[in-house]
C-alpha cells in the first residue's frame, strides 16, 4: 500500500510542475507582463510598485531563473502582496478564508454522498419506475436551477417568512458569548442553507454516476448467477452489486472538487460568507493579479489533493489496484 501511495505521489509531480509552468506563463503573457498590470492599477505609486514588482518577479533575471524563483515561491505558498488597497500578503488572505470554504465543501460532499448513493442505487434497481423518473428530474433540477435564485427563494422562505434560519453570514453577533453547545448550534444554523444548496447542485453528477454503475454491475454475469441461485433480490443488490458499483464513485469525489470550488464564488457572494470564492471574485473585480494567481494555484493544489485522496481511498477499498 505504501508503495502505491508513493507511486501515486510521484505522479503528481509532473502535474505540479505543469501547474507552476502554466501559471508562470499566464502572468508573463498578460498584456504587457506583470508590471504593466500593477502600474495600471496604482498610478499613485507607479515607480514604487514597478520596483517592487521587478524585485518580486526578478524581472531583471534570465527567464529560467525567474521561473525557478516562481517555483520556489509556489512551494512555500508565497504569492506576494495583494494589489488591493490593504496590501496584505496573499497567502495570509487565503489562509484566513480557506477553512470556511473547505468546511462547506466537505459538508456538502458528505451530504451528496449520503443522498446520492442510495438514490442512485434505488433508481438503478427500479429502473424506469416512477421513483426513477422523479429522482432523475429532481437531481437534474438541482443542477439546472440558478443557484443565486434558489438561494434567495430559500432565504425568503426560511429566513423571512418562517424565521427558522438566519439569512446570511457564518455566525450571529452573540456567537462569542454563547456556551459551547450554543456556538455549535449557531454555526450549524448558518450552514444549513449554503450546504443544502451546494449539495443539491452536486447531487446529479454523483447519483447519475452511481445509477449507471449499478446498472452495469447488475447486468453482469455473477449477479445473474447469484439471482439464479435463488438469492433474494435485496440480498443480491446489497451484498454483491453495491460494493462493486460503489468503488468507482470514490474517484468522482475527487473530480468534483473544482466544481464545488467554482460554485463557491456564487453562494459565498449571495450568502455573504467570507470564503475563498468571495475573495477570488473581489480579486477579479479589482484585477488583483497576485491574489488571482494565488487562488488559482491553491485551487489546483486542492484539486490535486482531492484526486490523490480519492485514488488512495479507491486503492484501500480495492486490492486489485494496489497490486496492479
Amino acid at each position: 500500500m505504501l508503495r502505491y501511495v508513493a507511486r501515486r505521489l510521484l505522479l503528481t509531480i509532473p502535474l505540479l510542475v505543469g501547474i507552476s509552468l502554466l501559471s508562470f506563463l499566464a502572468i508573463h503573457m498578460a498584456p504587457g507582463g506583470p508590471i504593466s498590470v500593477a502600474a495600471d492599477l496604482n498610478p499613485k505609486a507607479t515607480a514604487e510598485y514597478r520596483e517592487r514588482m521587478v524585485r518580486y518577479y526578478g524581472l531583471d533575471q534570465p527567464i529560467h531563473v525567474q521561473y525557478g524563483r516562481w517555483l520556489g515561491r509556489m512551494a512555500t505558498l508565497d504569492f506576494g502582496e495583494s494589489f488591493a488597497p490593504d496590501g496584505r500578503q496573499v497567502s495570509e488572505k487565503i489562509r484566513e478564508r480557506i477553512p470556511v470554504t473547505l468546511t462547506i465543501n466537505i459538508l456538502s460532499m458528505g451530504l451528496i454522498f449520503l443522498v446520492a448513493i442510495p438514490l442512485g442505487i434505488y433508481s438503478a434497481v427500479r429502473k424506469d419506475s416512477w421513483f426513477d423518473r422523479i429522482s432523475t428530474v429532481t437531481v437534474f433540477t438541482g443542477f439546472a436551477v440558478p443557484t443565486f435564485w434558489l438561494a434567495l427563494l430559500l432565504m425568503i422562505l426560511f429566513g423571512v417568512k418562517l424565521g427558522w434560519l438566519p439569512i446570511s453570514g457564518l455566525v450571529s453577533l452573540e456567537h462569542d458569548s454563547l456556551p459551547l453547545a450554543g456556538k455549535a448550534w449557531d454555526r450549524a444554523r448558518h450552514l444549513v442553507l449554503p450546504v443544502l444548496l451546494a449539495g443539491f447542485g452536486g447531487l446529479a453528477g454523483m447519483s447519475r454516476y452511481m445509477r449507471s454503475n449499478m446498472l452495469e454491475v447488475i447486468r453482469q454475469d455473477y449477479i445473474a448467477a447469484a439471482k439464479a441461485k435463488g438469492l433474494v433480490e435485496r440480498q443480491v443488490v446489497f451484498r454483491h452489486a453495491m460494493r462493486n458499483a460503489l468503488l468507482p464513485v470514490i474517484t468522482i469525489l475527487g473530480l468534483s472538487v473544482p466544481d464545488l470550488l467554482g460554485g463557491a464564488v456564487i453562494f459565498e457572494t449571495i450568502f455573504a460568507i467570507p470564503g475563498m470564492g468571495q475573495l477570488f471574485y473581489q480579486g477579479v473585480m479589482s484585477r488583483d493579479v497576485p491574489l488571482i494567481m494565488g487562488i488559482l494555484v491553491i485551487g489546483a493544489f486542492l484539486t490535486l489533493i482531492g484526486n490523490l485522496l480519492a485514488d488512495v481511498g479507491y486503492a484501500l477499498a480495492d486490492p486489485r489496484i494496489r497490486a496492479g
Binding site: 501547474i19 484585477r287 488571482i292
Partner: peptide, 20 residues
C-alpha cells in the same frame, strides 16, 4: 498531461480570471 493540468483549475475560476 496538459488536459490533466487544465482540469486541476476550477473552470469557473478560470473563466472569471480571463474575463477580468
Amino acid at each position: 498531461r496538459f488536459v490533466d493540468i487544465m482540469l486541476c483549475f476550477p473552470t469557473f475560476f478560470l473563466i472569471l480570471a480571463v474575463i477580468a
